[in-house]
Amino acid sequence: MPVSAQMGPLRRANQLTQLLDLTKGLDRYPVDVEQLAREYSRATAADDPIQDIVTEPLKGFEGALVPLRADPGGWLIVSNVLATPGRRRFTVAHEFAHWVLHRHLLPPEGIYCSEEDVSRRNGEDIEKEADTFAAALLMPLHDLRRQIDPRAKPTLADLGALADRYGVSLMAATLRWLEITERRSLMVVSTEGYALWARSSDPAFKSGRFIRTSGPPHEIPAAAGAMRPDLSSECRAGITHPPGVWFDEEVEEFTVHAITFEKVITVLHLGDARPLWRTVEEEHEPDVIDRFRL
């Protein structure tokens, strides 16, 4: 039976988190995911371990888990040398997840993961499972809650501190925070005045606050800080917009213009509101602290 059929990605990541907490202590971040992948795979599957982890220039994909045919066999993890260190760390964790959860399900050539699968947390099926595992392993729920209260309204500086602590990109840290926050908030990634993709927190989504990017191009509002690189300092510090700019309600915007990557990263905070609908509940994320209370 495949590993993923026996235990979901959150519980597998949580098991490793408990192991790391016990052996390395609670202030052990960022996770040395390459060392973990090598040592864990050799300890649990000595005849089929991860033999090496390399970075190479990649075109068309961000990372891969590839079987090694020559003796002694095993697997190779590849990440994109052109990516930032934070993105590479998440990619390695993503490919490690494929080894833990899916290696018995993969085709003979292994699996090659695109930027959308990894960086945007927007994959399907086993790619979604690998993203879920990687985020929970690198940014565990119990530690994330200690850094930022789920009811707090973080600034870009707060989210940047999360990224530094966990050794991941600002986008990865913000996506993870959006999964646990009780606030109505969104992240929008844009370029040249149009949204590339966006993600809402669960409370924001349930109140109807989301941005569709799968259809026609979504134009960024002209009055938004995301359209004003000349106001980069003000955008980082936070700008409050009246109703009618982003949505028909007041919105607080924090934006960083990542000129090097030709992308604009925007975090939007909204006020309280009642949900318009309920969503289907997915697998509950176990908290290490909750597990110890059982």
Rank of each mutant, 00 (worst) to 15 (best):
G208S: 03
L170K: 06
E192Q: 11
E179S: 13
G215E: 09
W197V: 07
S207W: 07
R176Q: 13
A163Q: 05
R176Y: 05
L178Y: 06
L178T: 12
R209T: 00
M187A: 09
L175C: 03
R199N: 09
L178E: 07
R176F: 06
T181E: 09
R212A: 14
S169D: 15
S169Q: 08
A173G: 13
R184M: 01
I211N: 03
K206Y: 02
T191P: 00
S169T: 15
V168I: 08
L196S: 08
S200H: 03
K206N: 14
D164Q: 15
T174L: 11
I211W: 06
R184I: 03
T181V: 10
K206P: 01
E182K: 09
W177C: 13
T213S: 11
W177G: 12
E182F: 01
G193K: 04
K206A: 13
D164W: 04
F210Y: 15
Y194G: 00
S190L: 04
M187D: 01
S190N: 08
W197R: 11
I180A: 05
S201A: 12
G193W: 04
R165K: 14
G215F: 06
P203G: 03
S190E: 09
S201G: 09
S207C: 15
I211M: 06
T191F: 00
W177I: 09
R176C: 08
L178C: 10
I211S: 05
R199Y: 05
G215A: 11
S200L: 00
G208Y: 06
W177S: 12
L175I: 04
V188D: 07
G193T: 04
R165P: 11
A204G: 11
D202F: 00
E179M: 04
D164E: 15
S169I: 07
G215T: 07
T191N: 12
F210C: 12
R183N: 12
F210D: 14
Y194I: 10
R176I: 03
A172F: 05
M171T: 14
S207T: 14
Y166Q: 08
A204C: 04
V168D: 02
K206W: 01
Y194W: 04
R184T: 07
S214R: 11
Y194H: 13
A195W: 02
S200G: 08
M187C: 10
E182W: 01
P203M: 02
F205L: 14
F205A: 11
T191S: 15
T174C: 09
G208F: 05
R165E: 15
T174F: 06
